[in-house]
């Protein structure tokens, strides 16, 4: 059963890693945490659910819908919580994103009612069995999507001018503006992208767990943040590492301890790293 738990952990770790990247993007640019990230993920999940229930039973379309909704909500949060609050202390933006988190959650309960919605299964058949461990197509797809997303982002950031601009703004926005870079536009773009990623993962998670509800974002957001801090929130490779490690540790902690300790282990990691190694495993050197 060790192998099965490891496989479960990797599948779940893919979700953590992708949310962690969303946190890294915002942190890299603004040295800020968007605590409404989990709720963007939740809204993405609803968007995907609406698509498969009422438009087309195509998972691809649902993922795109999650991406688009996440983009829009991310863009909006940036405008309200960050751009409009430039010049006031950072804590105001932070509190504002917490406010957003509650607002979006209540909005979703009001719009969709609070009960859990059932998301149909996709690709849930066992692809192959290896040493008593079952691996489903969806689990493979999740890991592949996560890896592809990460590669795409690495290309975007390190092989394109737009990525160069994002990194330049992240490193020194004043100097970047002197190079003619439109700091506001770059910030807005990266923020929207982080939201889009969260919305996209929301659909993936909804499909994996077959459930969508208004409160699904809270724990997911916290775990994604934990993964980011764990691996190193300043960099995308750090976020990825943190995501997969957290997934594996959580699932193995169920095996070796008890499921009651699962969240405890995660939050212990969060607190320990925030206290003693706030730059994560990869440390300060790794940059967006």
């Amino acid at each position: 059963m060790f192998l099965q738990q490891l496989i479960n952990g990797l599948a779940q770790g893919s979700l953590f890693a992708l949310i962690a990247i969303s946190f890294s993007l915002v942190w890299g640019l603004l040295r800020m945490v968007n605590f409404a990230m989990g709720e963007v993920y939740m809204l993405g999940a609803y968007a995907g659910w609406l698509v498969v229930m009422y438009a087309t039973p195509n998972l691809g379309v649902a993922l795109v819908a999650g991406f688009v909704i996440g983009w829009i909500v991310g863009w909006f949060i940036e405008k309200v919580a960050f751009k409009a609050m430039r010049g006031v202390p950072h804590i105001a933006s932070l509190v504002c994103t917490i406010g957003f988190s509650f607002f979006l959650k209540e909005l979703a309960s009001a719009l969709f009612r609070a009960e859990t919605k059932s998301m149909p299964s996709y690709y849930s058949d066992t692809a192959f069995t290896f040493a008593e461990a079952n691996i489903s197509y969806l689990q493979i797809i999740m890991v592949v999507i996560a890896v592809v997303m990460m590669v795409l982002l690495q290309i975007l950031f390190y092989r394109t001018k737009i990525g160069l601009a994002v990194r330049a703004v992240a490193l020194d926005y004043r100097t970047a503006s002197l190079m003619g870079m439109k700091v506001d536009r770059v910030t807005s773009l990266a923020f929207s992208l982080s939201g889009a990623l969260a919305g996209f993962v929301g659909v993936l998670a909804a499909t994996y767990y077959n459930a969508v509800n208004a409160s699904m974002g809270f724990v997911a957001g916290l775990k994604g943040f934990t993964a980011a801090v764990f691996g190193g929130i300043t960099s995308i490779p750090g976020a990825i590492l943190g995501g997969y490690l957290l997934g594996a540790i959580e699932n193995l902690s169920v095996k070796y301890m008890s499921s009651g300790y699962r969240d405890l282990v995660s939050y212990f990691i969060l607190i320990t790293f925030l206290l003693f190694r706030p730059n994560g495993i990869l440390g300060k050197k790794a940059k967006l």
Partner: peptide, 8 residues
């Protein structure tokens, strides 16, 4: 939401 680990 993730019961895979405990069920396993």
């Amino acid at each position: 939401t993730d019961f895979n680990a405990v069920l396993t």
